[in-house]
Amino acid sequence: MNSSDGAAVVVGVDGSEQARRAVRLAAGEAARRNRMLRIVHGFIWPLLHVPVGAPPGGPPGSGLRNQAERFVTDAITEAEATAPGLRVSGEIIDGEAAAVLVGEAPNAMLIVLGDRGMGGFAALVVGSVAVQVATHADCPVLVARGTDRTEGPVIVGVDGSAVSPPAVEFAAEQASLRGSDLVAVHTYLHPVAREPGDMQPLVYDEEKLRHEERQLLAESVAGLAERWPDLTVHQQTIRGRPAPILTEASQQAQLLVVGGHGRGALSGLLLGSVSQSALHHADCPVAVVRAPG
């Protein structure tokens, strides 16, 4: 996570209603963190060798380049109305939207975008740009979806893998900034392989397993009280599949935080199944936090 003093909150815009919602969400994030908000629009048309200027004899302000400028200008106006006094900048960058936003990640503390853009198909629950950016960006990615709430907890999914610590830390910071509780949710079905080559037992003690899973969750949130002494942390260990449990929990949450890959994720998968499900089905904004490296 890029937490340097110069790191901005970056939001991608394309003129859609989803993008305007993302701008409002990003403006709130930047204001809470006292960071600059950087608004960017990925302008793909030059790459496709499409004329971008106003056509001969066309009305003033016509043409794709002028349209892109309006997208950015309107987004700046939206951000300033959402958080008066916020430092805001805007830029049009030639390139495909996902590539442009991923390129912003090294100098961003957070990237915010809508779940679908103007080109989204109705049959797609979440757009390919959101999935690509969440998969490849080197900073947390916040996707505006579901219902915007100012009440309710921040929920983080914990599975004990390498992505859990950065996800838990991000979620704790979010809960502290929002003045809300943090709910850490850990789910389990049966014993899992802890190390490469481990064999799963055919017979196991249910009570012992429950104790071990609770201990795993407790260890995952240990130390939060020292960094955020005023933060109330709730721990929930639930037997069941993580995706539907987190989806149900998101119905009462301000924010759902998940790791980019889960325990047992295959390297060939772009995103873990739980984070994919959260992006498609959660009923609140979703933050995807990948482990560094």
Rank of each mutant, 00 (worst) to 15 (best):
L101Y: 06
A99I: 01
S89L: 09
G103V: 01
V102D: 04
A97C: 08
D94N: 09
P84E: 11
R87N: 14
I92V: 15
A81C: 09
T77A: 15
A99V: 09
G95D: 04
L101V: 04
V88N: 07
G95M: 05
G95I: 06
G95R: 00
I76D: 09
V102F: 06
A108K: 01
T82I: 07
A108Q: 06
A97W: 05
M109H: 11
E91D: 12
E96F: 02
A83G: 06
I111M: 04
T82N: 00
E78A: 09
A97V: 02
S89R: 14
A83C: 05
G90A: 08
L86A: 09
T77I: 13
E91I: 02
I76L: 11
A105S: 14
E96Y: 11
R87S: 13
L86W: 07
E96M: 09
G103N: 08
A108N: 00
N107C: 11
A108V: 07
I92N: 13
L86P: 02
D94W: 01
A83M: 11
T77L: 12
I111A: 01
G90V: 03
I92G: 04
E80M: 15
V88Y: 05
L110G: 14
I111T: 08
M109P: 03
I93F: 08
N107A: 13
N107S: 14
A83T: 07
E91A: 13
P106I: 13
V100Y: 07
A98T: 06
G90D: 08
P84F: 03
I92Q: 12
P106L: 13
P106C: 12
E80S: 14
T82M: 04
